[in-house]
Amino acid sequence: MEKERYQRLVRRLIYLSHTRLDIAYAVGVVNQYMHDTHSSHLKAIYRILRNLKSALGQGLLFASHDHKSVEAFTNADWAGSIGDRHSTSRYCTFVGGDLVTWSNKKQAVVTRSSAEAEYRAMAQAMCELTWLQTLLTKLGIEIDRPMKLYCYSKAAISIANILSNMIAQNT
């Protein structure tokens, strides 16, 4: 009975996390234990619900802007998963200043450094930007500014620049 209740609550929180980014990470963590639940996991669900109750009326705001810029912001935590030492990639994309997509996903491989984890997050965000550009073009929406990718890791940016230069030399 407790397992079924836990799974039902997690499914509802996953749906809610699409408009409440503040709970997205916590919901992602409790989602990992859908099939192997303990009482401590249910307590975590109740903490998320208490947080939601204390912050009623908060959510995403979509406003009208006069520009159609496309931007992505990336982040990663190196070996942040205690259980298997995998890193977590995070990115969010904005079109015209409004948040349109985001991701908080455990990386498929164990990275050897924080720079590698950040670079993998940048690569995932670039895939999302490419998809957004294709989608906007098919919808007939013209982007009036170059797309931008933001990352605070100087090492990951250096890796991306080196690889970009190598690709440019080979073409």
Rank of each mutant, 00 (worst) to 15 (best):
E71N: 03
A156D: 00
A108W: 07
H86G: 08
A55G: 00
I162D: 15
E71V: 04
A156N: 05
A115I: 02
L132R: 14
F94E: 01
L139Q: 13
S89T: 07
I162E: 09
A72K: 11
G140K: 12
A115E: 01
S114Y: 11
G57L: 02
R112T: 02
R90Y: 12
M126C: 15
I157R: 05
K138R: 13
I143N: 04
K68G: 05
E116L: 09
S87E: 07
K148G: 01
G59E: 02
R112Y: 05
F94I: 01
C92R: 05
G97D: 05
K105V: 10
V109T: 15
A108S: 15
A155H: 10
A155C: 10
F94P: 00
E71P: 00
R145W: 09
A55Q: 04
S81R: 10
L60E: 05
L163D: 04
S113R: 13
V110K: 13
L139I: 06
H65K: 13
A115C: 12
C151Q: 12
L132T: 11
G59S: 07
L139A: 14
R85F: 06
G96E: 00
T88N: 10
R120P: 05
D144P: 10
Y119G: 11
A123N: 06
G140N: 11
M147A: 15
D77V: 06
S164F: 09
V70M: 06
D98K: 08
Y152W: 06
R90I: 03
I162F: 08
R90M: 03
D66T: 11
G97I: 01
S158E: 11
Q58T: 03
F62Q: 09
Q169Y: 10
E142Q: 14
A160I: 06
S113E: 12
M166N: 13
A156H: 05
I143E: 06
L135T: 13
T134V: 09
Y152Q: 11
Q169D: 14
A76Y: 13
F94Y: 15
D77F: 02
K138T: 03
N104T: 14
S81N: 15
Q124R: 12
V109G: 08
